[in-house]
Write a protein that binds this DNA or RNA. Sequence first.
RNA 1: GCCCUCAUCGUCUAGAGGCCCAGGACGUCAGCCUUUCAAGCUGAAGAUCAGGGGUUCGAAUCCCCUUGAGGGCACCA
Length: 480
Amino acid sequence: MTVRVRFAPSPTGYPHLGNIRTALFNWLFARHHNGKFILRVEDTDVTRKVEGAIETMMDSLRWLNMDWDEGPYYQSQRLSLYQETANRLIEGGYAYPCYCSPERLEAVRREQMRQKQPPKYDEYCRNLTQSERVEMEARGIKPVVRLKVPHSGETTFEDLIRGQITFNNDTIGDLVLLKSDGYPTYHLANVVDDHLMNITHVLRADEWVSSTPRHILIYQALNWQPPQFAHLPMILGPDKSKLSKRHGATAINEYREQGYLPDAMINFLTLLGWSLDDHTELLRRDQLIQHFSLERVSKTGAVFDKVKLEWMNGVYLRKLGIEEYTKQAMPFLERDLPPSVTRPLDIAYVNQIMPLVQERAKTLAEIPQLVDFFFLDDLSYNAHMLVGKGMDAAMAASIIEVALQKLTTIDTWDSQFLESYLRQLSTNLNLNTGKLFSLLRTAVTGRTATPPLFQTMAILGKETCLGRVRAARDRLSTLQ
RNA sequence: GCCCUCAUCGUCUAGAGGCCCAGGACGUCAGCCUUUCAAGCUGAAGAUCAGGGGUUCGAAUCCCCUUGAGGGCACCA
């Protein structure tokens, strides 16, 4: 039997990292077993629907290169399926219409809470007579359909990750299958679709464990064979609670905007709850598919460690060929370089610069700020930055004056020549190379931390460099 | 309150009775390299394996209890 799994998001917001990780494990499982990965939209809550959510979700899946084989199926377009199933359950005596108002339900629940009882439907409508039902209908009350959960016995299932899990039926309560607006609840729709779509394995987040017995009960009432279940550990925030907005960025597209690479995200997210062995951290997509197995999924929730993600992204960034690196960086440069910089950017110029920052950025989004001085006409920095350790303003001024004179005379403006020439100059001046270089670095870039100085100067070109050194000289004069 | 689940360095994890006075990775610290910053390399610190009882010749690994944490208990998914 071929493996068929599904990813079933509801269009109620932006693609959460947790959802994406669930999708990822389903996808890896499907690809590993040469099975099918199905996309299904659980849009059965009309009130919570967010416009554009599904498009964003699909964008994210495409960005991550997680292709699906079927779908998207929309549950909102399959309503009759659920309604028929609900009717079948009523006819079989496994479910019943319930006419209780939300107000009554709320009152019952409050009372139960007050008495420290588990909140559970009191089955008020479970044994209504036919005439009572007719009367309710006559009053125009739209009922919900509830599952008649057995009062005794227990429901057990084998979780592929956690082993056997058992619930007492009397703790479950008669859940709603069909809402009064004719839409199914998650529980019904989920069971009906998983069955109709021949889903073999349900891999979903941990938070669904306690609703699994309800689903099993529905399968049993319908005389359907349930799929296999595996509940994945959740992704946690630093305080170990379910990862949420208050912990920072939780939407996958935010990571895309922050300059993370899809392959790095995939690698990192997989390692949140799965491991290959005791030493492998970096795995290519095909290796992930090859090795993925539920046996190696851990049971514990995993804290999302953004610092480690940054490290891994840096690794992937450095592994990129320079052409690819530049291609990836370009949109970020266009987006984030100061507005004063002329667009479109000169590709040949960018091509020269990128090799200088490839090993210095952990995300694509930090590249623009690393290289903005290559593009700006006027540098802005504090004159005091020019005065290095062990020197004063006057000394800095005199060094820069000499350097300016000498640099003006140079004809060969490549990094090799600049380096040997300036090393010689520092010797002649009886100066530490460090002192001269850092002074020039600040003058030429306005920064104290930059890519290698001579390559930077070579790319900037003689005229620009001389102009900046002159500007530095002028700045220094204001200090004296 | 009730139900379910989980529990190894700060974090992600390896470990399915002896190979473990617990291994790897991120982070941290130190050193090397070095024109700065990175990157790279080397090394260090860091977990009485939540606590307590068993079982066993032997337990991080099996059992029980306690504690802690998380999740669930909607006409939301």
